[in-house]
Write a protein that binds this DNA or RNA. Structure first.
Length: 705
DNA sequence: GAGCACTGC
């Protein structure tokens, strides 16, 4: 990169109006049923309404903890909040980051005697959040974690009979709903971070609404539902819960100055580079920069360019510590973003949207937002998932901007014009409308939802979309049609018990027939976590040499099986992982997943046999369960799927990349520049006909017509 | 011929 690129022309930005309608000011005209003034000098009246528990004289806590709780903006509104929440079945709570809503509301409810008859559940989209929030709240209550306050996430249940406030992942509550769709354990469910609209939260909206209604009809303990959101788009939540009131809480966000570009930027990477060095030249070096890009490759390239330019800066310029950040980066390298830069050195973090929600870095003064994101879209017609670089939504842009104002006032450079911004989508399309619904549909059927096609989703997926999922489940033998009513077959019910994609659950359930359950458990565990293979681009030759000894000409599944075996035989050694370019953290997770899946098999009294060295039975088992995902070699040397004749290619990460097997099953199709098959296994076409004669006969006829 | 945003059970 030429040096002149580092020194930008004079200001190319123009100031924006600032965050006009952030959750920082309640916009006029919004239907906020009740306004809770909090923080500042707002809340004089609230104090008289406080129940005695919150008064210092009655407080069992040391003064410091109590003072800290009292200093939160939300505290002033405590009395009003409790008075409201006591009488409401459902409420929507709009609270900015830093308002303290997530840690305080569950405590207020408990202290106020609301929901004490049973457990108060607080859901989170992420495990770490559930764990750290539970830890903090149990500290504030001066109780041992797992007693009054606990958490439940996959692999980790820190609760007891005494637990009254329980933090859990939204996926975990959804799983609980399969065995008890009325959520009888709970008196109150708080759905936090609802604005993120994860697929699990979206399904939970429907589940809690139905449970609330049904419990009322049955005259059981009422279920209180509180939806918490950090963005202004709460009308939808309110409407969905029959016009539930919106309670508004002010937070503690610092002002952020926003600059837009004057002209649209055709090369956002170059624009980002220029902005970084413009800031670097002008701002004190103690102020760190966070840049949002779209993916690993882009981030690594940009990091290198920044380092190269920073090396050749003129005297007097401070130095620069450039840190990439993305999910597949090894954990130790991710941690570096939390360490302070050496004196006289500026930290520049170049990140994917992982820094938007999942990872919060302190000390960020400047945010550079390219306005781009890599995200998945789903096409129900073709069943294809497309991973594409696209524009962010307005809410996403505000989320990024907010990362600049966490401790102090900040600045956000938006690498697009204000007009462009106005044309961004208002909200990110909820995940439930963007991904394959096979798992969700299976779960809803396991909860005995009367009709999945008319299930009360807050944002309905298209009927085609649900129909595609039903068709997939039918092929897997999970469904039967009883008098026009869809119900699960015994196999389907068993599939729902596994925390896996239905087709993977089916693979496990079929494995006893092929006497290879041990091997299949390993393979499915490996497929259901992030790749255990670490491929640093700079050491490609080394990686290839080391990996050679594991590679099987039978494909990726058998290769992965070989790697896991070697890992196990060395006693799960971390040094072995390092030498063999294996991600040890993911490998440990594989072992954990495997033992969970094995436990579920035990509970079903499944025989667990090993095929020992026989890999053919393993591949037969894969062929029998993954037959819908098959591709065949065409006369011209390309591949096409058996199902829809979609042209596909072998992904470069596959061990079969340079091979041309006649027939393969794959575990995933991904559309980037091309349509790629990932994780391939060489199979015999005959096995497939054996597995699903009807399916392939139909396909054959279809291709002849 | 050549590549993978982020979660979660």
């Amino acid at each position: 990169m030429p040096e002149e690129a580092g020194f930008p022309p004079a200001k190319r930005f123009r100031p924006g109006a600032g965050p006009p309608r952030r959750a920082g000011s309640c916009p006029p005209g919004r239907r906020v049923v009740m306004l809770l003034a909090a923080g500042g000098g707002g809340g004089g009246g609230g104090r008289r309404q406080q129940p005695p528990l919150a008064q210092p004289s009655a407080s069992p806590y040391p003064e410091a903890v109590e003072l800290q709780r009292r200093s939160l903006p939300i505290f002033q509104a405590r009395g009003q909040l409790l008075a409201q929440l006591r009488n409401l079945d459902s409420a929507v709570l709009l609270g900015e980051t830093g308002s303290g809503k997530t840690t305080q509301i569950p405590q207020y409810l408990y202290e106020g005697g609301i929901g004490r008859q049973a457990i108060i559940a607080v859901t989170q989209p992420r495990r770490v959040a559930a764990i750290s929030l539970a830890t903090r709240v149990s500290d504030e209550k001066r109780t041992e974690l797992g007693k009054l306050v606990g958490y439940t996430v996959r692999f980790d249940d820190v609760t007891s009979e005494d637990t009254k406030i329980k933090f859990l992942t939204d996926g975990m509550l959804l799983r609980e709903a399969i065995s008890d769709s009325l959520l009888r354990k709970y008196s109150c469910v708080i759905l936090d971070e609802a604005h993120e609209r994860t697929i699990h939260t979206d399904v939970l909206f429907g589940v809690v609404k139905a449970a609330q209604k049904r419990r009322k009809e049955l005259g059981k303990l009422p279920l209180k539902v509180i939806v918490m959101s950090a963005t202004m788009d709460v009308d939808l939540f309110s409407q969905y819960f029959s016009g539930a009131p919106v309670l508004y809480l002010e937070g503690r966000q610092h002002p952020i100055q926003i600059f837009y570009t004057k002209q649209p930027q055709h090369d956002y990477l170059h624009a980002a580079l220029v902005s970084v060095f413009q800031i670097h030249q002008e701002a004190p070096c103690s102020q760190d920069i966070l840049v949002f890009l779209t993916g690993q490759e882009e981030i690594e390239a940009m990091s290198k360019t920044c380092r190269d330019i920073a090396k050749h800066l003129p005297d007097g310029c401070s130095s620069m510590l450039v840190l990439p950040l993305y999910a597949s980066l090894p954990y130790a390298q991710q941690l570096r973003v939390f360490q302070g830069a050496p004196k006289g050195c500026r930290k520049v973090i170049i990140s994917t949207n992982i820094a938007e929600t999942s990872i919060t870095i302190t000390g960020i003064k400047y945010v550079v937002d390219t306005g781009m994101v890599k995200a998945k879209k789903y096409n129900p017609d073709s069943g294809l998932e497309v991973l594409a670089v696209q524009r962010v939504s307005k809410t996403q842009a505000w989320q990024r901007t907010g990362r600049a104002g966490r401790e102090d006032s900040g600045v956000c450079y938006r690498l697009y014009t204000e007009d462009e911004f106005e044309k961004f989508e208002k909200m990110t399309v909820p995940e439930i409308q963007r991904c394959n619904l096979t798992s969700v549909t299976l779960q809803l059927l396991a909860m005995k939802v009367p009709d999945v096609l008319t299930f009360d989703f807050m944002s309905k997926p298209s009927p085609d979309h649900i129909q595609a999922a039903i068709a997939q489940l039918e092929l897997l033998g999970a469904l039967e049609n009883k008098d026009g009513q869809l119900t699960l077959t015994p196999i389907g019910r068993k599939m729902a018990a596994f925390p896996l994609e239905p087709k993977f659950a089916k693979t496990i359930l079929l494995s006893p027939k092929f006497h290879c359950t041990e091997e299949i458990l390993t393979i499915i565990s490996l497929l259901s976590v992030d790749s255990v293979l670490y491929n640093p681009p700079s050491r490609r030759d080394e990686v290839q040499a080391v990996r050679k000894k594991f590679i099987s000409s039978e494909g990726d599944h058998i290769t992965l099986l070989n790697i896991y075996r070697a890992f196990k035989n060395t006693g799960r050694n971390k040094d072995w992982c390092k030498e063999n370019f294996v991600n040890s953290k993911n490998m440990m997770l594989v072992a954990e997943v495997r033992s969970q899946l094995r436990d579920i098999c035990f509970k079903m009294s499944m025989p667990i046999a090993s095929s020992r060295g026989d890999t053919e039975s393993v591949r037969r088992c894969l062929a029998h369960s993954l037959f819908v995902s098959t591709a065949e070699l065409q006369p011209d040397g390309s591949y096409a799927t058996t199902d829809t004749r979609q042209p596909v290619a072998i992904h470069p990460s596959s061990v079969l990349f340079h091979c041309k097997p006649a027939c393969v099953v794959y575990t995933e199709l991904l559309f980037t520049n091309k349509c790629y098959m990932r994780d391939l296994c060489v199979v015999d076409a005959e096995w497939l006909y054996e597995a699903a004669p009807d399916f392939f006969r139909r396909k054959l006829r279809a291709s002849r017509n």
